[in-house]
Simulated scan of single mutants.
Amino acid sequence: MDDNGTPLLSAGEIKAQVNEILIAVLDNPLNNLEWALAEMLNKPETLQMARDKLDNVVGKHRLIEEFDVPQLNYTKACAREAFRLHPVAPFSPPHESVTDTIVGDYFIPKGSPVIVSRVGLGRNTKVWDEPGEFRPEHHLQDCNKGEEVVLEEPDLRLFTFGRGMRGCPRVVLGSLMTTMLFARLLHGFDWSISTNQGTIDLCPGRGVPFLAKPLLVVAKP
């Protein structure tokens, strides 16, 4: 409410926001999972490493629980790498600069519309070694210093949840759902490519962030 006690959002606007939150919380983790698993199936050594790391943390006699998440750095690194290579949208939502500002080598006048390329950030050769390759190790440098891997990116080397007041309000929920879903599927099943397929076709769909061909693989408990 404003200073006079008047609601700032109508009932229709609140319902629209809730609907958007529910859709995004489901759609984005599932899309990320599909891309990550597709990439890892084409790199069996990466898939096996992820499973070994999960077994070291959790073992084979129970399911992964929420309290395990801080220790699942390799799983989160795989999810981050999928976000880097295959963002859910090619550009960020448009913003507007409220003052004259300088970002890097660029002067941005007050009132300018600003749109960030998610693909451009994630594949920037000045930031990432071998930016076209799926390498979870891209995100493990801080982990080696004892820090936890997280899915958001405070330094905007990639664009997952955005930043500031216009950033995604679902960072905690989205990160937890992505990590738990991904980790439980990796931990609970042996994944393989069907014998008549060879490798996974990583061609994206036209105009959408999904695989052009739905991911069809073999899951063995």
Score class of each variant (00 low, 15 high):
residue 91 F to A: 06
residue 61 H to N: 15
residue 51 R to E: 05
residue 69 V to C: 09
residue 72 L to Q: 04
residue 84 R to P: 01
residue 90 P to S: 01
residue 89 A to N: 07
residue 38 A to H: 02
residue 72 L to C: 06
residue 46 T to S: 11
residue 88 V to T: 12
residue 55 D to P: 00
residue 96 E to I: 00
residue 95 H to G: 00
residue 74 Y to V: 02
residue 61 H to V: 10
residue 77 A to I: 03
residue 41 L to K: 01
residue 65 E to T: 15
residue 58 V to H: 11
residue 75 T to C: 13
residue 43 K to E: 15
residue 62 R to V: 10
residue 44 P to D: 09
residue 40 M to P: 04
residue 54 L to M: 09
residue 74 Y to I: 02
residue 100 D to Y: 03
residue 79 A to F: 08
residue 45 E to D: 13
residue 101 T to G: 00
residue 47 L to R: 07
residue 50 A to P: 01
residue 71 Q to H: 12
residue 46 T to Q: 09
residue 91 F to W: 09
residue 100 D to F: 04
residue 96 E to A: 01
residue 52 D to K: 13
residue 76 K to Q: 14
residue 73 N to D: 15
residue 73 N to M: 03
residue 43 K to I: 14
residue 39 E to N: 10
residue 73 N to Q: 05
residue 66 E to C: 09
residue 80 R to L: 07
residue 64 I to M: 10
residue 42 N to G: 05
residue 67 F to P: 11
residue 90 P to T: 01
residue 64 I to L: 10
residue 101 T to E: 04
residue 84 R to A: 00
residue 60 K to C: 15
residue 61 H to E: 15
residue 36 A to L: 06
residue 74 Y to D: 02
residue 71 Q to T: 09
residue 57 V to W: 06
residue 88 V to S: 13
residue 40 M to Y: 07
residue 99 T to Q: 13
residue 73 N to K: 03
residue 71 Q to I: 01
residue 63 L to N: 15
residue 36 A to F: 07
residue 34 E to H: 07
residue 93 P to A: 11
residue 43 K to T: 15
residue 96 E to M: 03
residue 78 C to E: 07
residue 36 A to P: 07
residue 35 W to N: 09
residue 58 V to W: 13
residue 79 A to N: 01
residue 93 P to N: 08
residue 56 N to L: 13
residue 43 K to Y: 12
residue 91 F to G: 05
residue 59 G to C: 07
residue 34 E to S: 14
residue 60 K to Y: 10
residue 51 R to H: 11
residue 69 V to E: 09
residue 59 G to Y: 05
residue 58 V to I: 13
residue 93 P to G: 08
residue 57 V to N: 08
residue 83 F to M: 15
residue 77 A to W: 02
residue 68 D to K: 12
residue 79 A to D: 02
residue 73 N to G: 13
residue 72 L to T: 06
residue 47 L to P: 09
residue 55 D to H: 11
residue 79 A to I: 14
residue 54 L to A: 03
residue 85 L to C: 04
residue 75 T to L: 03
residue 101 T to S: 06
residue 37 L to Q: 04
residue 34 E to G: 02
residue 50 A to C: 13
residue 98 V to K: 12
residue 74 Y to R: 02
residue 49 M to T: 15
residue 96 E to R: 01
residue 45 E to F: 12
residue 96 E to H: 00
residue 44 P to C: 08
residue 37 L to V: 14
residue 97 S to C: 06
residue 57 V to G: 06
residue 79 A to W: 00
residue 67 F to L: 14
residue 61 H to Y: 12
residue 46 T to N: 08
residue 95 H to L: 11
residue 88 V to P: 02
residue 51 R to K: 15
residue 98 V to H: 05
residue 82 A to P: 06
residue 84 R to T: 00
residue 79 A to E: 03
residue 76 K to P: 01
residue 98 V to A: 11
residue 62 R to Y: 07
